[in-house]
Every structure is written in C-alpha cells, then in structure tokens.
C-alpha cells in the first residue's frame, strides 16, 4: 500500500503545479478530461476491481448524475453546488436499488442484468420527452461560480478553475477509495473477490460488502456526471450509452483493475493515446482497437504491472517480488 502512496503524492504535487507551468487551453482541456475520467473509472473500479463483479450498468449512474445536474440547475433553478450533492446522492440511491436487486446474482447473470438496467434507463430517457427532453437533451447548463459575501470570487470562465475542481474530486474519490480498500470492509471485499465461499464461511456477508462498494461506486459516478454536465454544458442521452461504459472499462483494464493508481494511469493513457492518434484520421479507431487487444494480451493485469514484469527480468531496479493491492 505504501508503494502506491508515494507515487500518488508525487503525482498530486505535480498536478497542483501543472497549470502554473503549462498554460495552453487545449492542453488544460485534455488534463481536465483526464481528471474527469479518473473519477469515473475509479468509481467503476470500486465495483469491478475490488468486488470483482463486471458491472455494465455503471454508465447509468453517470447518466443519472448528468441529468440530475442538468434538470436541477436548468428546470428547478437550484445552485450548481447543491446540484452536486444531489447528483451524487441520486446516483447512490439508484445504486442502492439496482444493487439490492442485482447483487444477488453473480458472474454472467450480473453482467447482463446491470446492462439491461442501463439500457432500459437509456430508452426511457429517449422516449419520455416531457421530463427528459428526449434525444436532444439539455443545452446551456450553467457554469458553477463561487460567491462570497455577495461577490463572485470565482466565475469559472477559465479552464484552470474547472481543473482544480476536477482535481479536488479526484482527491476525494481516491481518498474515499483508499479508506474503503484498506478498511476491514475493503479487505473483506477483496476476500469476496478472491473466494466468495471462503469469505462467507468466516462470517463475511458478501452481499452486505458488495452493496457498500456498489453504492459508493454509484455515488462517485454521479459526481463525475455532475462535473461533466457543467463542464461540457450539454448532456444528451448518449451519457447512458455504451460508449462511456466501454471507455471506463478500457481505462481500468489498461491501467490495472483493483489498484488505486490503475484508473489514473488508464485515464491518462487512453485520453492521450486517442488524441495522439488523430494523425491516423480514418484508421484512428482501428488502430486503437488493435492497441487495446495487444495491451490486454500482454499486460492482463494492466500497465501498473509493467514495473513488476520488468523487475522479474532484471530490467528494473528493485527486488523481484510482486506486490498486489
């Protein structure tokens, strides 16, 4: 665990200093997307990485966060910050309900039932125009602002403001995840992932711990939805779609599931690779698919395992021991 703490702190320091060094708006945009995806992928990692269940319904919680933010600020006129709390809570409540129903099933059945929930929700959002505005969605979602004593202190006209909000969300997410993973509860979760029957026999109730992980994951997915809605300023039904689901799965798998830094690495690598592949034009996505297959085949435990692999061959300093989180 301490092996993960040091690089994380170094990363945090670098992240805080980053806007002071680089000032390009496009670069800032990419870094914001990296941070946003870090929160989203980490939230899925709590479920898939630690309790080992492949949830394909996670985009639904992200979508609920997006729509809660859009509807509360545009239709109900609430403040952006209140909407943040509600977006997270709404997703968590949905996580509780869906988790309560689905976590009784495992393996394949869980994969499919979570997918079914997300699809039902997406189709309802498209068809129920009166409430959700249908396929066109919500444009002009307001930017947040920080008002102190009647004066606008921060108006979020600059990308740097969004960057630091995203960074705060990342820190909260990773901290909460860390607390969860290294609590008695988290250790129990890992036990469930590794051997559910044995875990049960020593008095761990897999359902209870899985529920906690699921609701926690949903909450942070909702928060990332809130951020997305206000940063992009537009949400449509595509936030419930398979595209986001696939993106976050790829990020945790490429980075390394079941680790804290994994999704961070995955979010950064995938965002940058997709962007750098622009030179390839039409074959961009074909190349991306190919790279993804190679990455899974050669690093099935993700890129976090690369130092271990190198170390074992003596290409990297340090003992040849492998450590897992």
């Amino acid at each position: 665990m301490s092996s993960q703490r040091l690089p994380l702190l170094a990363l945090l320091a670098a992240a805080i200093a980053l806007p002071l060094v680089f000032r390009g708006e496009y670069f800032m945009h990419l870094m914001i997307m990296v941070l946003f995806y870090t929160v989203l992928a980490s939230s899925l990692n709590i479920v898939t990485g630690y309790i080992g269940q492949l949830s394909l319904g996670h985009a639904a919680f992200f979508g609920i966060g997006c729509y809660a933010a859009a509807m509360l600020t545009l239709d109900a006129g609430w403040s952006v910050w209140t909407a943040m709390i509600i977006a997270g809570l709404a997703a968590a409540v949905a996580g509780f309900v869906i988790g309560y129903i689905t976590l009784r099933l495992d393996g394949h059945y869980f994969v499919l039932i979570t997918l079914a929930f997300a699809e039902v929700l997406r189709l309802v959002v498209i068809n129920w125009e009166e409430v959700t505005r249908g396929p066109l969605g919500f444009p002009n979602i307001p930017r947040p602002s920080i008002v102190l004593g009647g004066e606008v202190m921060v108006d979020f006209s600059s990308k740097t403001h969004f960057y630091y909000v995203a960074l705060v969300l990342v820190v909260i997410t990773l901290w909460a995840k860390h607390r969860f993973v290294y609590s008695a509860m988290g250790r129990a979760s890992v036990a469930i992932r590794e051997n559910p029957r044995l875990a049960q026999s020593v008095g761990i109730d897999p359902f209870y711990y899985s529920m906690v992980a699921f609701v926690l994951g949903a909450f942070f997915a909702g928060l990332s939805g809130w951020f997305y809605a206000h940063y992009i300023s537009y949400v449509g039904p595509d936030v419930y779609g398979f595209g986001f689901m696939v993106t976050m799965l790829i990020m945790i798998a490429v980075g390394g599931r079941g680790t804290i830094v994994g999704p961070v690495i995955g979010a950064a690598i995938i965002t940058i690779v997709v962007e750098e592949l622009r030179f390839a034009r039409e074959i961009r996505l074909s190349l991306f698919g190919l790279l993804l297959m190679l990455s899974i085949l050669f690093f099935p435990r993700g890129l976090v395992s690369v130092p271990d692999l190198l170390r074992r061959r003596g290409w990297w300093p340090g003992a040849g021991k492998t450590g897992t989180a």
């Binding site: 798998a253 074959i283 074909s286 698919g289 190919l290 993804l292 297959m293 085949l297 099935p300």
Partner: peptide, 25 residues
C-alpha cells in the same frame, strides 16, 4: 486462449478491442 481461466473482464475487453477494430476496419 491466452486469457482462458482469467477474470471475465479480460476476455470481455479483448472482444471490445476486437469489435472496435473490426467495425472501423
């Protein structure tokens, strides 16, 4: 075959990669 016996996610992701590759190609 190289991923036989591994977590569901590994094979799921390889097929996701394959689907992205195939559809765009």
């Amino acid at each position: 075959r190289p991923l036989r016996g591994q977590h569901l996610l590994s094979t799921a992701l390889v097929t996701i990669g394959l689907s992205i590759f195939l559809i765009n190609t």
